[in-house]
Design a protein around this nucleic acid. Sequence first.
RNA 1: GCCGGGGUGGUGAAAUCGGUAUACACAGGGGACUUAAAAUCCCCCGGGAGCAAUCCCAUGCGGGUUCAAGUCCCGCCCCCGGCACCA
Length: 847
Amino acid sequence: MPTEADKAYDPVAVEADWRARWDRNRTNSFTLEELRTAERPFFNLMMFPYPSAEGLHVGNIYAFTGADVFGRFKRMQGHAVFEPIGFDAFGIHSENFALKSGVHPTELIPANVANFRRQLRRIGGMFDWDHTVDTTDPDYYKWTQWLFLQLFNHGLAEQKEAPVNWCPSCMTVLANEQVIVGACERCGTGVEQRFIRQWFFRITEYAERLLRNLKHIDWSDTTLKAQRNWIGRSDGAELHFPVAGSEREPGRTASGEDPGDEPAAETTRITVFTTRPDTIFGATYVVLAPEHPLVDAVTSNGCRADVEAYRARTQAKDMVARKKIEKRKTGVFTGGYCINPVNGDRVPVWIADYVLMGYGTGAIMAVPGHDERDFDFATTYELPIPRVIAAPGEDTSTPLEIAYEYPTGTLVNSGRYDGLDVEDAKTAIVGDLAAQGLAEAKVTYRLHDWCISRQRYWGPPIPIIHCEACGPVAVPEEHLPVILPHVEDFRPDATGVSPLSRVSDWYEVACPSCGGDATRETDVSDTFLDSAWYFLRYPSTDFRDRPFDPEITRRWLPVDCYIGGNEHAVLHLLYSRFVVMALHDMGLLHFEEPYDQFRAHGLIIREGAKMSKSKGNVIIPDPIIERYGADTFRLYLMFLGPFVEGGDYQDKGISGPHGFLHRLWESVVADDDQTPGDDPDPAVEQKLHQTIEKVTEQIATLRYNTAIAAMMEYLNAARAGGRAPARAEIEPLVCLVAPFAPHIAEELWRRLGHEGSVFDGANWPAFDPAKAAERVARVAVQVNGKVRGTVSAPAGADREAVVALASSEPNVARHLEGMEVRRTIHVPDRLLNFVVAEAAAIGSGSG
RNA sequence: GCCGGGGUGGUGAAAUCGGUAUACACAGGGGACUUAAAAUCCCCCGGGAGCAAUCCCAUGCGGGUUCAAGUCCCGCCCCCGGCACCA
């Protein structure tokens, strides 16, 4: 006998019950054997969270719920869906929090992870808890270190000097995002740059493939665009400007006839990169980055003091400030000159910090007439600004008020190239200079090599041993993992090197190669390395002796669907693509792109404002879940707006979805005497199939908000006028709602008499187009484009039939009176439009 | 500055192969049921005029194309996110 308590919807009880059943029945977990043999495998991935001390953020819940809805939907369509979750627990966030709170990360992180696990279970995600990953677990980072070694062994890891942000007050290295307008985010002290030897992965070797493959993968457009911009291919040329006074200048003839027979090795040349070789006649000076290696060579004695002072000033600025556009460009003349290779003109050489050593060749030819930055600089230092490109309607003498930068026009003031258009001139000039050894066509990428060294504590040690005799030596694979030693005080100190460099009994080791005295690398690796391969690990966590099992990997990878935030649209996705591509080239993976499909979700705001701790308007999930249940919370989050765009969380709005689930519950768990027979009402059944069609299509395209609206509309129709829906009307709705509200769906499915989980077996309702078809169409009738009435016509009715119906509609007839119908436009089942004009000037006026 | 994405009721938002603008929900108002409350159910809800039928206006602003424009084209304004001297 069901009791009263059994009949009321108690979300907290239902959800606790079903969490227990899922665990008991292993509903969401795969055994190793199941992973090996799964039919129709579907790898549903979401970006794993950083387990913060504050607990799961609504942003996380939003993202995970959206991904989980998709996974459950696929599962109900008969796929074997693998949906793992893990913890990205290394990195500067944990370390800084630990420094501030005084709790060591080795205590902090496990506590945070435990809390996250609890919260993740509570939201009802279909997570396989037997296959999780924690990047701080030595069993995991052993393989992160292994990955480093694979790249090292294949020549893709190398050491280079590179600048870091240094705060002289905190005595620590800062990440770029910790530098706010040139100052340390914590103490406000001005940041300097220091040069340190660091490890880099040669991702730039893969730039072209990383760019090219973007054409074939199914990703959000915005993400593809962000990747393209980041890789930043630009097509241009390197041009060589011999330094005046060094040997063997080319002849001074304007046409550049002197071929300068051999490209004389002893000639010092400044090589510039430009995308506009057509403007070379307008190059009135050359600018080197202050760090450029030729600065010393070109600087005259008279200018040396100024040059040195300027270089010192530049170095004191941090990299971030230097990248900000300042109002005035600055620079100094070196006293040196070089020769414009196209006409033999002597042009002065300057240094300026608007030229960056890290891009192109670290040197530019300045064309002030056709480049805004050069224009500003030339204006400041009163350098000449000639015109060499004329737009239509302009000529040589048209004054240049601002730089003319458009890549179209005709050359002027350019010797024998005058009259050529921009594109032809590029080819001709580069071709002619190349014949003299003074130019090469060249493609440059904005993408930099990936610096993975961190002078920090909370990360996996880089598995390298430095030996005086042998150089950097890989830690032998059998010695992995290189365990991160427990260091009580891991605060960075004045030396600016990693905290691990203070642990001599850890870093002093024998060289694996020669056995001599050697030291471990004391930097740890970037968190992005941890997350660059975690999806490979998930299905293979049953193996302790290999990072990923070939057979399992072949079945499950690449990832079928990846959902995550656009804040990782660039780096994380790019790095993981690179790692996969490299492993593919080593023969370790059968694919070279990790994610078949990627979708970026939107952001949640609250009551129209961005959420932030300082505003005190963050949504705290636990109390909401306690009050309404996870199902309501999930449903509401997905209802707020389109998943890929985000939405505005308004506290009161949750009552809508909550009421919907209550009504659904009552429609199933109705009083016995109200339970009607099994025959569905034809009109309701029609609506049902229309709803199945919409919901199926909209979930597949992540338009969850409208899918939910369609279900609400259907339930309203099925309950209209207080009627109790028939079982055949309501049972399919339980299935449709299941991806969003899995606990209540399970419970109602059980109460409808089914054994086991609604997610086992392909229970997604079948759509029958015949049942969904409308038999009567409501056709809007317009006169001159204005709606004057609607008529009901049999579906598919032809023009004459609809015209006849429409003409007898009183209001339509009134508007047609005295008018001549010139045209009639008929859109079947939708609309009829009479285009009319006054028949004659005679009888005006209507009734 | 550049690259994305947007501006539709009191609010979150629907509708973009051009075809009845405002689905669904919140907030608000009225009613039924109930001892009462909750829950449920029904009705109203863009602005203006009118007793009403009905008419006019309305999708950031200004033009245009079309029988027909929230949707397409041109020119602006504003908001959000990202990148930022990339030669």
